[in-house]
């Protein structure tokens, strides 16, 4: 009797768990469903399965939101800033770990302090600075901001990781006459591969999803990123949900693919950052 009861509760519990999981991803399913429904169908049946499938809104959304151009912009900005950031911060983190003096621990604290500075605080002075320096509305301008914004977390994550890298290999290389640079690029950097992959994926997601920076510093139609494009799009066709959903679908799906491929690295990064901190 008792085991029978506990089995029933287990089954009910499992059912509830799957229901909760379904609620978690329902909005994403809804995006896909709504994008392929015809307009009259969406109006009478906004939440269920589509009865007929149409792809007309994808074609329209592709053109009206200049999909190819805005995705290329986003990819360009994201890739350059993510790769450069990884290179620069791994060098800085390496120096911080291997040079254990006061200056370098001060630098570490300085970088960490950046983690609690809200972006809203830098936003207004940064806007003026970007205009004054002629960096407003330029790709390299926004990339430089991303280099700064990603630095605190990247240094934090990499310092934690480098601490666990054994020193013996480097010492052997130094004795063999390798310079510091050579040792770093030939010996240390390859060892950091897992941490760097994680870091790049995490930063890629945050740059891809970012809205505030590109809307403020890159409003030019031709240079606009994908999130700014969708917000502009929403403003222009605020009642055309079919079109908006087709657009959102095209933004969200690449992310889902990357997420499913790189899931392990994302989870590792979050837990490594959290537990070592």
């Amino acid at each position: 009797m008792r085991s029978y009861l506990s089995r029933t509760t287990a089954i009910i519990g499992m059912g509830l768990l799957w229901l909760a999981a379904l609620i978690e991803i329902y909005p994403i399913i809804l995006v896909v469903f709504s994008a392929v429904k015809s307009k009259p169908e969406l109006a009478v049946n906004p939440f269920g399965f589509p009865k007929e499938i149409t792809f007309q809104f994808f074609a329209t959304a592709y053109d009206t939101m200049h999909y190819f151009r805005s995705v290329s912009n986003t990819v360009l900005i994201a890739c350059v800033s993510v790769v450069l950031s990884a290179a620069m911060t791994s060098m800085a983190a390496y120096a911080i770990v291997r040079r254990k003096n006061r200056f370098h621990s001060f630098l570490y604290m300085l970088f960490l302090a950046g983690m609690i500075i809200p972006f809203q605080m830098t936003m207004i002075p940064l806007y003026k600075m970007m205009v004054d320096l002629g960096l407003y509305n330029s790709y390299h301008g926004i990339m430089m901001i991303y280099l700064a914004l990603t630095a605190p977390f990247s240094v934090f994550l990499l310092v934690g990781f480098i601490k666990s890298v054994p020193r013996e290999l480097e010492e052997a290389a130094l004795i063999d006459g390798c310079g510091i640079f050579q040792t770093f690029f030939r010996i240390v950097l390859p060892l950091l591969k897992p941490a760097l992959t994680t870091l790049c994926v995490l930063n890629l997601f945050s740059v891809w999803n970012d809205f505030l920076m590109p809307v403020l510093f890159l409003p030019d139609d031709k240079k606009m990123t994908i999130t700014v494009q969708i917000s502009k799009f929403q403003g222009m066709y605020s009642n055309d949900w079919s079109l908006l959903f087709a657009g959102i679908c095209m933004i969200v799906l690449p992310m889902v693919v990357i997420y499913l491929l790189a899931q392990r690295f994302i989870i590792n990064g979050i837990t490594a950052g959290a537990i070592k901190g």
């Binding site: 950031s85 620069m88 911060t89 060098m91 800085a92 390496y94 120096a95 911080i96 040079r99 370098h104 630098l107 300085l110 970088f111 950046g114 500075i117 605080m121 830098t122 936003m123 207004i124 002075p125 940064l126 600075m129 430089m144 901001i145 280099l147 700064a148 914004l149 630095a151 605190p152 240094v155 310079g179 510091i180 640079f181 770093f184």
Partner: peptide
């Protein structure tokens, strides 16, 4: 040489994050 390791990341961080933070305090 070690300074060259920190400098690139530090420069961008100082100019585009810490400097605006300090100017916000003045503004």
């Amino acid at each position: 040489i070690w300074l060259l390791f920190v400098l690139p990341a530090l420069l961008f961080y100082l100019i585009f994050l810490l400097l605006p933070t300090l100017s916000a305090t003045y503004y």
